[in-house]
Design a protein around this nucleic acid. Structure first.
Length: 800
DNA sequence: GCAAATATCCTACCG
DNA sequence: ACCGGTAGGATATTTGCG
């Protein structure tokens, strides 16, 4: 029989020395199913040297086959390796483990150049070879088999014929999703599963029903977890989302349930419990567990990626419409009956926010999963490099290209893009021109890639493209792997965008297509960086180096053309040009660039007024609609106190919109007065910095490192990549010694206002003001008198 | 021997 | 575990003076 199903996830089980691929899916009629494929076997390739005796080598391999774990087939195949035709043995074994057993042995046989594709997980191997598309519909020829009781599904099938994808990525109508969030009781820093109970587990499902499972008043949590498990079994969600759930909620539940003797039996595989898997994600067999934190990490505008910040930014739940409780206050709220309702509401708000984030992120995640072939639960956890690599591996399979091994290499740096020195000051009426997808288009135009690069042949301008400055050569024909992949991706994106036009922007179809084109864009934009990534399978430093060289040449030529048209070039970075906005000349420039260089360049925006210091990568502009763009400056950095950022933003706005230096100074003065008067909320004084390595590894005592040490001393765990929030308090000595974790600062009197004035507010304001003729002494003098009006001033007199 | 100058470390930004 | 280019603060180290 033929069935259609939506692919959720897959895995494999070895049953009686036979590997079974297990696919979890949903049928059109809504039945949850397991598909079993017993026909697939693990294999890998051994690439053969030219002019060797294939039979002899084959015999050699056969003799090394151990009858207890045999090689079951060796097939001579024609493949391509870096674009070149090669002969290889496709060596098939019985179970995945045996691949690991043979790969090293066979690699060392004379006549064999290398062993490849021996490190691809069996379940991914199946996805690639059958072109399966996670989060998409498929059709398969199956027969129904008796459902084993170990699977919590409606039906079980065995795949007996073709299994292949359909175009449809519309999620099943009744896809079930839950969001969850746990609260833990601890009075000492970071909670420990062997000691601290889970006091609340909050859940919200796609019917928008909210449930909370609470610990007993004496904080026993056995029932809490058991009821949660029961809930999951009964609601039977296909997708479970959390926020930082791979990092906290799941590991905690796993350890805690182990400790108190509860079976976390909430998967679709009876007896299995959630466990850590690839890329550090938590796998919940049969369900797609997705930690939304991974997607929040990709929003650069939100500096501190707390759930409330991200939900606020995305309009899911505004911060002022929800309950907020600091972690350290949780026990207090639990213990006090009058405060407990607030804690419960806090948990509900977190769960609702998480649910709301799922709505924002999951459609994109599904498209990314569908494109890369990585099941939804892994695609978030996988880095950009790995996402692209899986996409490339799928494409390689289609082209008959063997997948290169990941090899250890030393880091090699190379020259990057050009950044022009800006013309400092204020400029009126400036157009920002951007090359569309510059690097991908360079790679396409010059056929750049590890398979087209010419290394042991002399460069010939007739046959090869030669990169400027660096001289690397690339065959003009035939189109290489990357060129084909990128052409497909750019074309795909265009067609998706065209398809979008058929639907109203508010429609469901439009949304799905929009998320899909974004996913395609992410992959296309990552290809250049991928080639320069030392851990990439298709690493090619020269390729990346050639791309930036062509990029430099391209933008420099564009500048020449602009100048020849009499346009003033104010600034430029990598693929952008800031020129005086003379519409006629700019249009001419766009046309000439297209004609002479063969690249598309577009007006990205027009600034009514834009301001540069002498620094590169930093500018502030006023758009036609009155919005202010701030790029690179302190105001957009996460490691400056909010108050300093606010001042800089406001000063910039006053200067750009009104051009009033005095008003700007008065504003700064006012803020400083407020600060001195203790009117600035503490949270605007917190400075956040990422702890980018382990504390012991630091060679200097930076403020955030010292603050992290203080947290550690208080029993609060700090890990690599945590953001440390600190406030500078009064006292002597180095700034670092006075960096106090913000959660410990309750008394505003201990704040070193002097530091905030001298090292935060004034520098941030002066960055702008100094270009408007304000001297530091002038501002500092204004600051000194701030908040202490003389009697004379008070009665309206002028300052002395 | 001290303060100023310079070097190094470090983070977060731009495209 | 996608890239290089860049700014700028804080700390650490060296330099210049006489």
């Amino acid at each position: 029989m033929i069935i259609e199903f939506y692919f959720l996830d897959n895995s494999y089980e070895v049953i009686g020395n036979e590997p079974h691929i297990i696919i979890w899916g949903i049928k059109r009629d809504g039945e949850r199913i397991v598909l079993r494929d017993r026909r697939f076997r693990p294999y890998f390739y051994a690439i053969l040297d030219n002019n060797v005796d294939y039979d002899k080598i084959m015999k050699h391999i056969k003799t090394s086959s151990d009858p207890k774990s045999p090689i079951i087939n060796i097939e001579l195949v024609e493949k391509k390796y870096f674009g070149k035709p090669v002969k290889a043995f496709k060596i098939t074994t019985v179970i995945p483990e045996y691949v690991r057993k043979y790969r090293e042995k066979i690699r060392n046989i004379p006549g064999i150049i290398d062993v490849v594709e021996a490190d691809i997980r069996f379940s991914m191997r199946y996805i690639i070879d059958h072109d399966l598309k996670p989060c998409g519909w498929h059709v398969a020829e199956v027969k129904e088999i008796p459902k084993k009781p170990i699977y919590r599904v409606d039906r079980e099938y065995e795949v007996v014929g073709d299994i292949k994808p359909l175009e449809d990525t519309t999620p099943p109508k009744d896809l079930r999703l839950i969001a969850f969030d746990i609260e833990v009781y601890t009075k000492t820093g970071t909670p420990k599963p062997e000691r601290d109970p889970v006091i609340i587990i909050g859940v919200m499902n796609d019917k928008e029903e909210i449930k909370q499972f609470l610990a007993s008043d004496d904080k026993k949590d056995k029932n809490t977890i058991m009821e949660f498990v029961k809930y999951v079994q009964e609601y039977d969600p296909d997708i479970i989302v959390g926020y930082n759930s791979d990092g906290f909620d799941w590991p905690y539940l796993i350890d805690r349930s182990k400790h108190i003797g509860v079976k976390l039996d909430l998967t679709r595989r009876v007896g299995a419990i959630p466990k850590t898997s690839t890329y550090g994600h938590i796998s919940v067999p049969g369900r797609l567990n997705s930690d939304l934190y991974y997607f929040a990490e990709e929003i650069p505008e939100v500096k501190i990626k707390s759930l409330e910040n991200v939900a606020d930014y995305l309009g899911v739940m505004k911060k002022d419409e929800r309950v907020l409780i600091e972690y350290i206050d949780i026990p207090k709220y639990w213990d006090d009956p009058s405060l407990r309702p607030k804690l419960l509401q806090y948990n509900i708000d977190d769960v609702k926010s998480t649910f709301g984030l799922a709505d924002k992120f999951i459609p994109f995640a599904m498209q990314l999963s569908n494109l890369t072939g990585l099941p939804l639960d892994q695609v978030g956890a996988a880095s950009v490099g790995f996402r692209l690599e899986w996409y490339l591996m799928r494409e390689a399979y289609k082209y008959g290209e063997l997948v290169p091994n990941r090899v250890e290499r030393p880091a090699e740096s190379y020259r990057g893009a050009v950044v022009l020195k800006p013309v400092k000051g204020v400029h009126e009426n400036i157009a920002v021109l951007d090359f569309s997808s510059m690097y991908p288009n360079i790679m396409i135009k010059y056929n750049v890639g590890p398979d087209t690069i010419v290394k042991d042949e002399k460069c010939d301008p007739d046959k090869h493209y030669i990169a400027p400055e660096v001289g690397h050569c690339f065959r003009k024909e035939p189109p290489g792997f990357f060129k084909r992949v990128l052409t497909t991706l750019l074309q795909l994106r265009k067609s998706i965008k065209a398809e979008m036009k058929k639907y109203p922007p508010t429609s469901y179809e439009y949304r799905i297509l929009d998320e899909r084109q974004k996913a395609v864009k992410v992959l296309a934009n990552a290809t250049y960086g991928y080639m320069g990534w030392v851990h990439a399978r298709w690493y090619c430093r020269e390729c990346a180096e050639a791309v930036t060289a062509w990029g430099r040449k391209t933008i420099m030529t564009a500048i020449e053309i602009a100048k020849s048209l009499g346009l003033r070039v104010i600034y430029g970075d990598t693929d952008s040009l800031f020129v005086t906005y003379d519409p006629e000349k700019v249009n001419e420039l766009i046309k000439l660039i297209q004609e002479k260089l063969g690249f598309e360049i577009k007006i990205d925006k027009v600034y009514k007024r834009v301001f540069f210091t002498e620094a590169k990568k930093r500018y502030a502009g006023l758009l036609e609609d009155g919005r202010i763009d701030i790029v690179g400056f302190e105001a957009v950095r996460g490691d400056w106190a909010e108050i300093a950022k606010e001042v800089q933003e406001k000063v910039t706005e006053i200067l750009l919109k009104k051009g009033s230096v005095n008003e700007a100074i008065d504003y700064v003065k006012k803020v400083i007065a407020d600060l001195k008067a203790g009117k600035i909320p503490l949270d605007k004084l917190v400075i956040w910095k990422t702890l980018s390595k382990r504390i012991e590894e630091y060679s200097v005592d930076a403020p955030h490192v010292v603050a992290a040490k203080k947290l550690l001393k208080a029993g609060i765990k700090v890990s690599v990549n945590d953001k440390i929030g600190y406030i500078i308090v009064k006292g002597g000595g180095k700034i670092s010694s006075r960096a106090e974790p913000y959660i410990f600062v309750k008394d505003p009197k201990i704040i070193d206002t002097e530091y905030y004035i001298e090292h935060q507010i004034i520098p941030a304001a002066m960055r702008m003001l100094s270009y408007f003729g304000v001297s530091e002494t002038q501002l500092r003098r204004a600051a000194a008198t701030a908040g202490q009006k003389s009697l004379f001033e008070f009665f309206g007199g002028k300052k002395k």
